[in-house]
Amino acid sequence: MSSQPFVLPEVRRVRTHPLPEDVVSSPRAARSGGPASLLPPLTRRGFLAGAAAALTAAGLAACSRTSPVSAPSATGSSGSTGRLRIGAIPDQDPEVLQRLYGTVADSLSRALDLDVAYQPVTDYGAAVSLFRTGDLDLVWFGGLTGVQARLQTPGATPIAQRDIDEAFHSIFVVNAATGLPPSDDLTPLAGLRFTYGSETSTSGRLMPAYFLQQQGVDPQGFPGGPGFSGSHDATLGLVASGSYQAGVLNEQVWTTRTREGSVDPAVVRYARTPAFHDYHWLLGPAAADRLGADLPDRLIHYFTGLSADDAADKAVLDLFGAGSFITTKASNYDRIEEIGRQLGLVS
């Protein structure tokens, strides 16, 4: 084309890829100590020294600060008495959570005369690990995660459960298009696309799987294998969409969502499981060593003493969706442990 006497219309200069010469010349721009620099003279040595000083200062300043993401240390500002670190898995709005930290920690701190720090933890796996490492002293666990935590942390003791946890239930839901009428017979579910909630959830996976098995339905069967939606609300959404024709979720969430009126009419309640034990407060062994042997008793006394008549107590109870707290014992969760082993969730 170049041999033709044809003039191309004027176009932008071709942007070429950097040639080796460009690469060689670019550091000239970045290099230090140019004689005619327009910036205040900054030697390489001065630059390195300044950077090192700034970082050292930041490092030193960091030592006297608590990180916005880490677990609080065992020795709090109150000195010798130490600090009780509690943790819970958030399943609420972020801003509700911010309030939860304050309310629960303040209430406990006032009642026990202890320095209490609240640590939000996003997932149960992390909570179990933090409990094992002693980063958290008192954790609000689900049935299965509580068992996992106790097996990994010898000496841990269950402290209290909510009134509803003594006889907790799960709800099997189906999409209205399946046309299944409510029933106690779970066998028709075997032929439907089915989703559990989170994989290690007691009410969204473990106990429903057990009750399915009791009725002769393979809990790992279902066409295409069972799904794991990740949360109770996601289960509701997926069953409403019909991608999964059936699912199972925690009765507390079902009741709350039904009361709010936010459940899609395409989701129909199918069955309610028999009762089982679920959430509970678990205390690690190191806390009693540090804060006094009577700590478990004081905690049990505090939790069972919370009354819905008292405004401050009620705020705490409401945040946990409880009418009251009651005592519990390790043997309540033996069945969960046994089923967990069968399903390969406890090793």
């Binding site: 950097p18 460009d22 010349s25 670019s26 000239r28 721009a29 970045a30 290099r31 230090s32 100590g33 140019g34 004689p35 005619a36 620099s37 327009l38 910036l39 900054l42």
Partner: peptide, 15 residues
Amino acid sequence: LAAPHTPGDRLARDR
């Protein structure tokens, strides 16, 4: 970095 702006031929740091 691919197309450095250097004032003439002087060795200057790129601001």
